[in-house]
Design a protein around this nucleic acid. Structure first.
Length: 1170
RNA sequence: GCCGGAGUGGCGGAAUUGGUAGACGCGUGCGACUCAAAAUCGCAUAUCUUCGGGUGUGAGGGUUCAAGUCCCUCCUCCGGCACCA
């Protein structure tokens, strides 16, 4: 190499050092006269080595940042590391090193590599999410979100591998088995911390319209959020007939259709005469197992049996009946003597001992069991145990609630209101004493129960739009636990109301109860609270079960086709639906149902979606009422209905829904056709779903080719013919089909039908009918979302600790700010064994107890790494601030991000999460903007030279360091920009020869610089300014490939022509500077003192763009036949004459007539000849 | 199945509002330099051709003086969603 040759390695090192020493890229928060511009590229995991993907992600946007800087913007282009998370931990495990050391070593190494790109990062602002001074703010924001009700702890279903004892992500589940070990994956309930991202679902959806992003990115987000509009329609459950056990002995006691039950039993709950304890049986000295039970002998009453069993089994002589609970049920029963499980009917009898007079028990009884007195709380625990199959759990809690304090009572009629929202949640009030209650109050004089309920709700909750649904059950007399710790006896009516919307009226909120906090709870969660809350244990709660039973006596379905309600012939629930468990006592085929539940539990979501064959089980003994027709329909469970979509229940309309059709044919369920497709809706596509023997076309009897228009028409005609013969739309067997098109309603109701609704929707269109029928059946128009709350708990070590601690009662509390950062402990063996590694840290345990007190325990899960990356763009703005996550002024001057470069794989997760984060910060008043990124660009992927994704196993990985050492960083940067348009996320293969092409170009630039001329020709000057214009336009659009190609053309012209003078060459260098910062700096500094990167970007001088000759193509009948040089000032007529004289043209128009001559100035001339 | 986006030489890709399709680069061929090779430089390179011209932007139709670009139908690929009620 000659001394004057282009030596990339040398000059790149030289100028990188110079820039660093001169702080060329230090970015101030504001510069006078310059507008701020925030360019961001997604930071990366410190996985150890920079690959070509990093260059594509960082070096190409650097061109854009440099360009903006030369345009006069104050540009921030920062870089950092997403240094928490699975990839780092897995890699650390694999390499047998401490993840902390491994991660930080990698970061140091990668920083060095990043410097070689010649990128204009401001390193003074760098960050790493695993630094305590970073994650202290992650934790602080978590606790702030918690305080503002944006965080919750909830139990959700997760994929669980029994073998590895760990949670798996959906992607790790392959066909229902674990990706790693092949073991079956089950769905398991686990408590998780979650961000309530669904609170922002509408905003996240609607605000997309305000963003200047590529439509495909927005569309992906919309689909991920998955908003659907439809109706929620309530279906009442028909109460099943139950024979009371008292009506007769023997078989009469069994419920209709129930499986054979061995006998009728009593379960006796024995209460201590003085203490708050119950007598329980302890068998085989190991564990207490239950209560005294016994069989009812023929001719005996329940009371007699109960008292006899107490005397026989316990020896206590003086029991008295408190209550025989009026609900009978059946279930499995462990028979101690026979040592086997048996089916039996139970009656629960509550007995209280008058005294403790006791005689010796029989030897047999002594052999079986010891008896012991157990405190009430333990009894409750026992009743909640997983293995408790006894169905009398609930009943047993309803004892001992009335009549204790009647002396001081004052009677007043009151209401308790169950206020329900559209999600089926119930509003409860949490008073300052921790007591859980429903809103309610006393009836004023002359007020109806309904009026009182709505008035009280408005006063207590502030909600203005409340709808009365129904009064539940009868008035009941209860002791009411009043705030002054006295009890009064009163009639309580339970009223069910529903919220129409969430509008609040602040002035109507009662001032009486300032300590009251309202919470929405799911009914199951509510039961849990009522049962476990110690404050509540003596308060009346019998009615809790009662109103929940009523609440559960209906099933709400979500449908987008409410108009077809008259065609709903059965209901299908997801197997996980709450009602399945709640209706268990009424079911006559529980065994069958249970085995189906077990089967589906084993399947993952993915698995369920893959097996297309629909399966299901009818819930026998259960019937629902179609609210439109008033007719009873059957209820099924099937795993094609998904628990987490809509309400987890669907109304099945087999005649108008493909899936319902398939299911109904399989199980022979009725079809009713209620919507006639409009003529315009038929289209050319095949309208009918036909299936197996029911294939409708067979009835049509056509001979046309299947799939042809004629065949389709025949189907339609056959359908119309058939429907004409069916007065009520009920399809006969063998002619069952389905048509999901919209249209006009028919048979809703049909003639001579006794349906409860008169013909309010018959003849209406689908859209009209949806609204009318929804209102008519007390349904609601609503929206549902695919988006689910964001669960962030991970049973991993290398992540941000969740800053929560639990008091001795297990209640969570946020770690206060003064104890942040809540540091990640060091004394942990992080090898995964299924439990959270932090649970093994002694230091964390000790720390928690020292700060919060004895019995307090730390949360041991860490956060999903997506949490760390949801706000990092704020930290760059002020990365050393120890008072705030970022200073307010810094945020104001930079946010929102003007252009965010990233991978398409982050479109739905990271991009959505960080948008949520910004909206949450905005809601808390911490930032003044509502969206984090104004611009977003998804980049493509660099493939290996073979066109496949780069991977070590394929051996097609390109090592950028190696390429750089051969051709230089400038070449690699430019090649990556040249490979394809950066504004379209395509896949571009790396072509080793293509790199050489770019290097040749830079060599030419060098050569031109070595051979500058004294003057520049007009043509080159013109082309230079055209190039300037084009390059500006192209970078602005991020079509860097064409910007480079135009510069190549210019260099080609310069070399072919008479060269270029210093002045013009300087312009070219500046044009090239963002792309190739090193070589341009080297050539520029030969004649200048200040860096080229501090210069302004060239502006095109249009006056210098001259066309020396205007050559226009001549077309004849649209085909190019010749060219002509336009002369200035020539009239159209003169031009036309000149053209028709031309030999090239003559040839084509000879003997023909020129009809028309179209002259588009500067573009084309077209002669039309005949 | 639904919703986006795309289909152009041997390859990556140009063609910004309908106006000369294939810019620029790679590859290939020929030539120069060289004892030779590499590197470099120059010329050529959609395709068929009877050398007049014909045909060409996934397929077929349409609008227009003129269509890669606009309209209709279909096919393929990529991305997102999906037993979503």
């Amino acid at each position: 190499m000659k001394p004057n040759d282009y030596n990339a390695e040398h000059i790149e090192k030289k100028w990188q050092k110079y820039w660093e020493e001169n702080n060329l890229y230090r970015t101030e928060d504001s510069v006078d006269g310059k507008e701020n511009y925030y360019t961001l590229s997604e930071f990366s995991y410190p996985s150890g080595n920079l690959h070509v993907g990093h260059w594509y992600a960082f070096a190409v946007p650097d061109i854009f940042a440099r360009y903006k800087r030369m345009l006069g913007y104050n540009v921030l282009y920062p870089m950092g590391f997403d240094s928490f998370g699975l990839p780092a931990e897995n890699a650390a495990i694999k390499h047998g090193k401490d993840p902390r050391k491994w991660t930080y070593d990698n970061m140091e190494y990668m920083k060095g590599q990043l410097r070689n790109m010649g990128a204009s990062f401001d390193w003074s602002r760098t960050l790493a999410t695993s630094n305590p001074d970073y994650y202290t703010w992650t934790q602080w924001m978590f606790t702030e979100f918690y305080k503002h009700d944006l965080v919750k702890r909830d139990i959700t279903k997760v994929n669980w591998c029994e073998n590895d004892k760990t949670i798996l992500a959906n992607e790790q589940v392959v066909a229902g088995t674990c990706e790693r070990c092949g073991y079956d994956v089950v769905q398991k309930d686990m408590a998780q911390w979650m961000f309530k991202i669904t609170d922002f679902a509408d905003e996240l959806h609607d605000d997309l319209d305000t963003l200047d992003w590529d439509e495909s990115i927005k569309q992906s987000q919309r689909e991920w959020i998955g908003r659907k509009e439809g109706s929620i329609i309530p279906f009442k459950i028909q109460e099943s007939e139950v024979y009371d056990i008292n009506t007769g002995p023997g078989d009469d006691a069994y419920r209709k259709g129930a499986p054979i039950i061995e006998r009728n039993n009593v379960v006796v709950i024995i209460e201590h005469p003085e203490k708050d304890e119950f007598l329980c049986a302890k068998w085989k000295q190991v564990d207490w197992q239950g209560f005294v039970t016994g069989g009812i002998e023929e001719g005996q009453t329940i009371e007699e049996t109960a008292l006899a069993e107490v005397r026989e089994e316990t020896g206590y002589q003086n029991p008295e009946i408190v209550k025989v609970h009026d609900q009978s049920s059946h279930g499995l029963f462990w028979h101690v003597v026979k040592e086997e499980n048996r089916q039996a009917n139970y009656r629960i009898v509550h007995v209280k001992l008058k005294d403790l007079e006791q005689v010796e028990r029989s030897k047999e009884e002594q052999a079986i069991a010891d008896f012991l007195w157990i405190p009430r709380t333990e009894v409750n625990d026992f009743l909640k145990r997983e293995d408790m199959k006894y169905p009398w759990r609930v009943v047993s809690r309803s004892n001992r609630v009335f009549g204790e304090y009647k002396e001081n009572s004052k009677k007043r009629d009151t209401v308790k209101v169950i206020l329900r929202n559209e999600k089926g949640e119930i509003l409860v009030m949490l008073t300052s004493g921790g007591e859980m209650d429903l809103p309610g109050g006393g009836l004023d004089d002359g007020e109806s129960i309904q009026e009182c309920a709505i008035r009280e709700l408005k006063e207590e909750t502030g909600y203005t739009n409340i709808r009365f649904i129904q009064k539940i059950g009868h008035n009941r007399t209860y002791s009411h636990h009043a705030p002054s710790n006295t009890y009064c006896d009163c009639n309580i009516s339970i009223v069910l109301c529903e919220l129409e919307d969430y509008e609040l009226s602040s002035k109507n909120i009662s001032k009486d109860e300032p300590d009251t906090k309202e919470t929405w709870m799911r009914p199951e969660a509510m039961i849990q609270n009522f049962v476990t809350n110690p404050v509540y244990k003596d308060a009346p709660k019998g009615w809790v079960e009662q109103y929940l039973n009523h609440l559960y006596s209906q099933i709400s379905v979500f449908t987008t086709r409410a108009d077809t309600l008259y065609g709903a012939t059965y209901l299908v629930l997801a197997p996980e639906h709450d009602m399945v468990q709640n209706l268990k006592p009424q079911m006559t085929n529980w065994n069958e149902v249970e085995s189906y539940l077990e089967k589906t539990q084993k399947k993952s979501d993915l698995d369920r979606q893959q097996s297309k064959e629909k399966t299901g089980v009818q819930l026998k003994g259960i019937e629902a009422i179609n609210p439109a027709t008033g007719k009873a329909i059957s209820v099924w469970i099937a795993d094609y209905v998904l628990a987490h979509f809509g309400t987890g229940a669907v109304m099945a309309v087999p005649a108008h829904d493909e899936r319902d059709c398939e299911f109904a044919i399989k199980y022979n369920l009725p079809f009713r056709f209620v919507c006639l497709p409009s003529a315009g809706e038929q289209g050319n596509s095949r309208p009918l779903i036909t299936s197996g023997e029911n294939a409708f076309i067979q009835a049509a009897g056509t001979t046309e080719k299947k799939g042809s228009q004629e065949h389709i028409n025949a189907e339609w005609n056959a359908m119309y013919d058939l429907l004409g013969t069916l007065p009520d739309g009920v399809l006969p067997e063998g002619k069952r089909f389905c048509c999901s098109n919209t249209g006009k309603m028919i048979n809703s109701p049909a003639k001579n039908d006794n349906y409860s609704q008169s013909g309010i929707i018959n003849g209406k269109t689908t859209e009209e009918a949806k609204k009318i029928i929804t209102a008519a059946v007390d349904g609601k128009m609503t929206k549902t979302y695919r988006l689910r709350d964001w669960g962030i708990s991970r049973q991993r070590y290398w992540g941000c600790p969740i800053p929560m601690v639990y008091d001795p009662d297990g209640n969570p509390h946020p770690v206060p700010k003064e104890h942040l950062p809540w540091t990640l402990p060091d004394d942990v063996d992080f090898t995964p064994d299924g439990t959270a590694p932090l649970s093994r840290s002694e230091e964390l345990k000790k720390r928690t107890e020292e700060i919060f007190g004895e019995g307090w325990t730390p949360e041991v899960d860490t956060m999903d790494a997506f949490v760390d990356s949801s706000w990092y763009f704020y930290r760059y703005l002020d990365s050393s601030n120890s008072k705030r996550f970022a200073g307010e002024q810094a945020i104001k001057s930079w946010m929102p991000v003007d252009m965010y470069f990233g991978g398409a794989e982050h479109t739905t997760m990271h991009l959505l999460y960080s948008r949520f984060w910004t909206k949450a910060l905005h809601k808390l008043g911490l930032v003044d903007h509502n969206e984090p990124y104004t611009g977003r660009l998804n980049r493509g992927l660099i493939l290996g030279p073979d066109g496949a994704k780069m991977s070590k196993s394929k051996g097609n990985v390109i090592d950028p360091d190696e390429v750089v050492s051969h051709v230089g960083a400038d070449t690699v940067r430019m090649y990556l920009s040249f490979i394809g348009p950066y504004n379209e996320p395509g896949n571009y293969p790396w072509d080793p020869n293509g790199v050489v092409g770019i290097r040749r170009f830079l060599d030419r630039v060098w050569r031109v610089a070595e051979n500058l001329s004294d003057t520049t020709s007009k043509e080159i000057t013109s082309e230079l300014h055209q190039t300037i214009k084009k390059v500006r336009e192209d970078i602005e659009r991020l079509k860097l490939n064409t910007a480079i190609s135009s510069m190549m053309s210019l260099i080609n012209s310069i070399e072919k022509g008479d060269g270029i003078a210093q002045n013009e060459f300087d312009e070219l260098l500046k044009l090239l500077a963002p792309f190739a910062p090193h070589i341009t700096e080297e050539l520029w500094m030969r004649t200048h003192d200040a860096s080229i990167h501090l210069q302004s970007f060239p502006e095109p001088d249009t006056s210098k763009i001259v066309s020396v000759m205007k050559v226009l193509p001549i077309q004849i009948n649209g085909k190019v036949r010749s060219q002509i040089v336009i002369e200035e000032g020539e009239s159209n007529e003169e031009l036309h004459n000149r053209i028709t004289q031309m030999n090239d043209v003559q040839k084509w128009i000879e003997g023909k007539e020129v009809v028309k001559c179209i002259h588009v100035p500067g573009k084309i001339i077209n002669l039309v000849v005949k």
